[in-house]
């Protein structure tokens, strides 16, 4: 029996790559993108923003979450060309210089970070949560956390970091969405 690889050779010659302009972390970035280039590839491969992680590339792990016009979305499921004109914010654009976002600080302090691979996804989703809801309920926190797969922490410390962040914000410490 003869087989060749199941992936059929795809048609070539329609790769009309073009320069794509995206506003990323407040800066207009231009790079080459093909029609099939995902936002995740654009960020990681073209712009070198490797903070957004490629954990599954199928929309199942959440590690590539980025903010598109302020909302967390999965960069692996977005074509870069399809978000042209949007404001993209990645994990690299969350801290204000060296000053961490309150959630980032809480993630550090509460031991919510082990291997760190899901951390960008957790932070991106959390930043959005606190922008919408400075005092989220336990259920809202869990919904937010459930968007990203973490295999190390069991989520308890992450949840605690969210609770701590809410308290910090309520006490007027830090500013959600500091940029």
């Amino acid at each position: 029996m003869n087989t060749s690889n199941p992936a059929q050779p795809r048609e070539h010659g329609v790769n009309d790559a073009r320069v794509l302009a995206l506003r990323v972390n407040g800066v207009l970035q231009q790079a080459i993108a093909k029609p099939g280039t995902t936002l995740l590839e654009f960020l990681r491969e073209e712009l070198g923003l490797t903070g957004s992680k490629r954990g599954c590339d199928l929309g199942e792990c959440g590690c590539c979450s980025v903010l598109v016009d302020g909302r967390p979305m999965l960069a692996c499921l977005l074509l870069a060309a399809d978000v042209e004109g949007s404001e993209i914010r990645t994990i690299e654009g969350i801290a204000d210089g060296e000053v961490l976002h309150p959630l980032q600080q809480a993630m550090v302090d509460e031991g919510a970070i082990q291997c760190g691979f899901c951390t960008p996804g957790m932070v991106i989703n959390g930043v959005h949560l606190f922008e919408r809801t400075p005092t989220p309920t336990r259920d809202e926190i869990r919904t937010c956390i459930s968007a990203t797969v973490c295999r190390c922490t069991g989520y308890n410390r992450i949840e605690q970091a969210f609770v701590t962040t809410a308290a910090t914000l309520a006490a007027g410490g830090g500013k959600a969405g500091a940029q």
Partner: peptide, 14 residues
Amino acid sequence: PQIDSRDKVMGRAR
């Protein structure tokens, strides 16, 4: 906290 957690939380851990 882990000594590299700042790098991880800022997305710059490689």
